[in-house]
Design a protein around this nucleic acid. Structure first.
Lengths: 384, 384
DNA sequence: ACGATCAATCTAACCGTTTTGAAGAAAAAA
DNA sequence: TTTTTTCTTCAAAACGGTTAGATTGATCGT
């Protein structure tokens, strides 16, 4: 009874202090006013208001209970009486208490955090996937670390270490290189991992990828159907499976149709626009008699570069040269572009990646090693 | 020798325990086993190899020193002898020891982590800025949390809370709404914050923005110079300062030239392509006699939508209608687009945002309240 | 040979939570 | 009344690091 009376009183003072919040007011004064509960007050540091962050102990002191009880109340454990629970929650709210997720992470060995490692965030393909991942993550109460490697394997590895140290619960990786020795470490660790966009040749790896071979095959078969025979392949980094698989689809389409392919029309560089531009320019300039009538580019960025080169050489698309890309980034559908391309379900792939990761994280490792192959869709527009 | 024998044995027991993990398994038993160094061994759990992560204590035991010494050795403190240091580092390396950043964060009250809150990652403007931020962050040893709000103020607020709980050292925010009450809380807290892309009306806020008024003014003055009088403004969300400022530059350009502006040509929606498309369509259909001869769109995405609408209405650009955008996203420079637009130094803005944040984080609050205004550059291409 | 100095290392406290096992009080049963 | 049961609450031990202060042993000057 008396306890409660006292508590009320102290709360009264507490409010009074809050009202003075903005004016002159020293820590000492505050402590005088309020015995213990000086926390959550703001302090003048260098003429700037800064609030002292209340911890669970501060809440406990204010409520006159042990901090274990506060923890239980806030986490809605059944062994705390409803009265106390309500009272504690109210006080915590008033004090603006926010649990320290770092401390929680330490004891719970779970950080509600996942890492997203991608090679190039300026390729619109990845933001779209990232948005899917993020939406699913928010829903599940997770936050994601953004790790952009700029196609740099070393940076990828460094990120991998950092993320391990930061105790992420899971990892979604769009690998930047085919060198996976450093990835193996992750796969054997407790950290659940889902690979997107490129598969990893490891039994335990869970991968969500589009059927690159099929997609490329469809694209090139389409070009063959349209009568093209000299079809160039302009790819990204040679060592990357995405590229290899799309190249494989390309060759397969030739084989399917009993055609012979011209190795000199197969070129690779990086997955960027300027690379497509550069390669296409070379192709057009070096050998005018063996000029391709169509180009299959390994992604849309490359295709856009190719288109630029073609136009700058005074040729028209698709009359002189047809161009087909891969990914179907948003800008491929612009009326000025109208790029024919192989579409991937980017946003949904992101969502799927996260939900699959959640399954892994919940499931304790049962379902790892799955390879999920998504269906590509050829979107025919104006360039091919 | 004997030690190793024992460890092996204990590993065996440990496995047995792990298998019972989910069922009955008492803490007591684990502690008994714990005695020995079973760390860093890999264990079969559910038929999958998983390594048990070694802690600093495990390293200490292996090295035969206290774990304080290990900590000091690994952090290269001078009070550890070089011999011990080397020995400990070697052992730590062998064991694959990785410091637990969560534990470090708890005691150091610093997480080497910053939050990046942006409204729309699929707008290429933001990935470009993000890349700048990220590159600077990596260099400084920080990791960033990606928080995409989808222009949703509520989600922004939720993220803000989450990031506070996760004890980020700093925050870079591209605000999603003009309602900043929830941002005030952050500004008063210990968390250093830099706003990008939009300024926040708060004395203590540090903002890095482009001079929107000037940029818009330049763009519209350019259109006026080219003889346009009926210039429409197609904006994003009305309540957002970026939009207001660009609108202000627009009106200012009219005023500068003693021209009167037609309010019916000022329209706002959202900062997305479909919004530009929709608004422009309306504008073209509703009132054919009062049709604008030029459009200043508040960002490039809107401009692309506008262009699409114009073309679909059988009009040509820039002959019938000139279009100018804002941001200069990469795709604005495509030969098929050639969008005239106001360029922002996106990547550098990102770098600057992070270095400024670093200054704040280091400086203990001295230099907050700075507003950094970057210069826009009108890039004249083919659409206006 | 003595205490003082110094370098190297250790012990223990701490960061902010969760959770286990114990304790206390009230209610129910004997 | 005493014992048992049930419901709340508490104290203390983790979690994995960092760091202040104590301790030890060797080196030194005298």
């Amino acid at each position: 009874m008396k306890d409660r009376e006292q508590r009320k009183q102290s709360k009264g003072l507490f409010i009074a202090v809050r009202k003075n919040y903005l004016s002159n007011y020293s820590k000492k004064l505050r402590v005088d006013l309020h015995e213990e509960a000086w926390y959550n007050e703001s302090v003048n540091v260098y003429g700037r208001r800064m609030s002292v962050i209340p911890t669970i102990k501060d809440v406990a002191r204010e409520a006159g209970v042990s901090y274990a009880t506060v923890s239980r109340a806030l986490n809605n454990h059944p062994e705390v009486s409803d009265d106390t629970k309500k009272r504690i929650i109210k006080i915590a709210l008033e004090m603006g208490y926010q649990p320290n997720a770092i401390a929680q992470g330490l004891v719970k060995k779970e950080t509600k955090t996942v890492g997203l490692i991608i090679p190039d965030i300026t390729n619109p393909f990845f933001p779209e996937v990232a948005r899917g991942i993020e939406d699913a993550a928010v829903e599940a109460g997770y936050t994601i670390f953004l790790c952009n490697t700029n196609w740099n394997a070393e940076r990828e590895e460094r990120y991998l270490n950092v993320l391990m140290q930061k105790q992420v619960d899971g990892l979604i990786i769009g690998p930047s290189s085919e060198e996976i020795s450093h990835l193996g470490k992750i796969l054997d660790s407790r950290i659940k991992t889902v690979f997107i966009s490129r598969a990893i040749n490891h039994a335990n790896s869970t991968c969500i990828i589009i059927d690159n071979v099929l997609g490329a095959e469809q694209a090139v078969e389409y070009l063959i159907e349209r009568g093209h025979r000299k079809i160039a392949f302009i790819g990204g980094r040679e060592d990357i499976s995405t590229n290899r698989e799309r190249l494989q689809g390309y060759t397969q389409a030739f084989r399917n149709n009993g055609l012979e392919l011209d190795e000199s029309l197969v070129k690779t560089g990086s997955f960027k626009r300027d690379s497509g531009y550069f390669i296409m320019n070379q192709l057009l300039k070096s050998d005018t008699c063996n000029r391709p009538t169509a180009v299959f580019a390994a992604n849309d960025l490359l295709a856009l570069g190719v288109i630029q080169a073609v136009k700058e050489n005074g040729l028209s698309i698709p009359q002189d040269i047809a161009v087909v890309g891969f990914d179907d980034i948003e800008f491929a559908s612009l009326p000025e572009i109208q790029l024919t391309t192989v579409a991937q379900p980017k946003y949904d792939m992101g969502k799927l990646a996260f939900t699959t990761l959640m399954e892994l994280m919940r499931g304790g490792g049962y379902s790892s090693g799955r390879k999920i192959l998504l269906d590509p869709v050829l979107v025919v527009r104006k360039t091919g």
